[in-house]
C-alpha cells in the first residue's frame, strides 16, 4: 500500500454538515479493510476534532494520511486558538457556545476524549491564529 493523502474542508457553525468529514474518513478506512477497533477510536477522535472546528474556529480542514504503518489525522483551523491547553485538557472544562450545547456538545470532554482514543496525540495552538491537532494510530506494533 502506498501512502495516501486526503483533505476535507470543515465550515464554522455548520451543525448540519458537521461530521461529514469524519464520516467520509470512517467509510474510506472501512473500504481499506482497517481493523474496526482502530477505525472506531480514530472516528471518535476525528469527529471530536471536527466538532471543535465547527464550534470554536473560523473554519479549517482535516487531513487524512494513510501509510502502511500508521494513520494520521491533522485537524487544523483558523481562529482564536486555545488560550490554555493544560486547562482545556481537563475533563469538564469548556468554552462552548449555547448553540454547541443545544446540539449536545460542550461537556468539556472533547480534547481528553481525543487523547484517549489516539495512540499518539498532539495539540499545537497559537493565540489569534488557530489550532492544529494531530491524531495518530499505529497500524503495526512499534510503528
Amino acid at each position: 500500500m502506498e501512502q495516501m493523502k486526503y483533505t476535507f474542508n470543515v465550515e464554522k457553525d455548520d451543525f448540519v454538515l458537521a461530521g461529514q468529514a469524519s464520516s467520509n474518513i470512517k467509510k474510506l478506512l472501512r473500504q481499506l479493510g482497517i481493523d474496526s477497533g482502530i477505525i472506531r477510536r480514530l472516528a471518535i477522535a476525528t469527529y471530536e476534532a471536527e466538532i471543535n472546528i465547527v464550534i470554536h474556529s473560523l473554519g479549517g480542514c482535516i487531513e487524512l494520511e494513510i501509510d502502511p504503518s500508521y494513520i494520521r489525522v491533522i485537524a487544523a483551523d483558523r481562529g482564536p486558538g486555545i488560550e490554555d491547553i493544560d486547562l482545556a485538557m481537563q475533563e469538564g472544562y469548556s468554552t462552548a457556545t449555547d448553540k454547541a450545547r443545544e446540539m449536545g456538545f460542550g461537556a468539556g470532554m472533547g480534547l481528553p476524549n481525543m487523547k484517549r482514543n489516539s495512540d499518539r496525540f498532539y495539540v499545537r495552538s497559537e493565540k489569534g491564529k488557530g489550532t492544529v491537532i494531530t491524531i495518530e494510530m499505529a497500524l503495526k506494533a512499534g510503528a
Partner: peptide, 9 residues
C-alpha cells in the same frame, strides 16, 4: 443530525 453522527462514529 449530530445524534446520528455520534451513533455512526
Amino acid at each position: 443530525q449530530q445524534v446520528i453522527r455520534t451513533a455512526e462514529m
